[in-house]
Design a binder for these strands. Structure first.
Lengths: 136, 136
DNA sequence: TATTTATCCTACCAATTTAGTAGGATTCAA
DNA sequence: TTGAATCCTACTAAATTGGTAGGATAAATA
């Protein structure tokens, strides 16, 4: 299951991407338009800013705005920041590799074999999809 | 993340599939060979039996065995029983469809659009992979 | 028929994760 | 200097996960 965090984060990115300009948009505005709890969204936007997707401005007239063009934002990056590893098991993860302690031989493991295929299929999608592709 | 339940269930199916015959194998034997908690595995094998993947025999000389050939067991079926829906959000699920209550229009939703692609990519893998394909 | 050996089944439980909430600190514009 | 906005830490209720406990049931065999 996709977490609400990822779902809301994606929706917020898409909302900001479809603004006519890159002027700051208030959290309250995004929350209202996308039906998201404002406080929860606040923490999500914060991590998106910390990870280089958004800029922010404090005080009156402040808010969040995209700092890259939607075409440059790959879904791989978004998913890794919001949802974590793309692989379903650490032993097939490119960025978060870990050996399974219960599995003596990865090359002989059926789970490993299947999850490699799944990882590749997902990477293919996320790499070839940008924020620009998912806005209407 | 793949749950331990799914991971262990897959490993058990693969283990049973690579037996030389279809004689019953005891839970204890599977648990030992695959490094799985026996009691936990017991409940997993039970659901695999209830869902038509395994047969069982009680008493001395009893155990679990595959009741279909590995070539006939699609990963779609295994994943749905062990892990649940293949889709990451209910609004793109074929077998467990549900509307998002927060989303007024699916066709305009960026999450929906992305997750459709992801679902299709995963289905492609799971449909074209059988138990026979993942054993060594 | 009694015993042993296995699965069957329900109920419980600790730890972790998820989806938030509360409340104040900081910064900026007017 | 006073709002208005983000920033940031800490807390929490509910759900999920990964088991465990303990007995009921069924089958083989001595």
């Amino acid at each position: 299951m996709l977490s609400k965090k990822t779902k809301y984060g994606l929706k917020a990115l898409a909302f900001l991407a479809s603004q006519p300009d890159r002027e700051p948009v208030q959290i309250a505005e995004v929350a209202k338009q996308e039906n998201i709890s404002q406080k929860f969204l606040e923490s999500i936007l914060l991590t998106l800013r910390r990870n280089g997707f958004l800029g922010s401005k404090k005080g009156k007239g402040g808010g969040y705005y995209l700092i890259k063009s939607p075409e440059e934002i790959q879904m791989t990056a978004v998913m890794r920041v919001l949802e974590g590893p793309i692989a379903m098991v650490p032993c097939v993860s490119l960025n978060f590799y870990e050996k399974c302690e219960d599995c003596p031989d990865e090359t002989a493991c059926s789970v490993h074999r299947l999850m490699l295929k799944v990882r590749d299929a997902n990477l293919e999608v996320y790499r070839n999809t940008t924020l620009a592709d998912v806005i209407s």
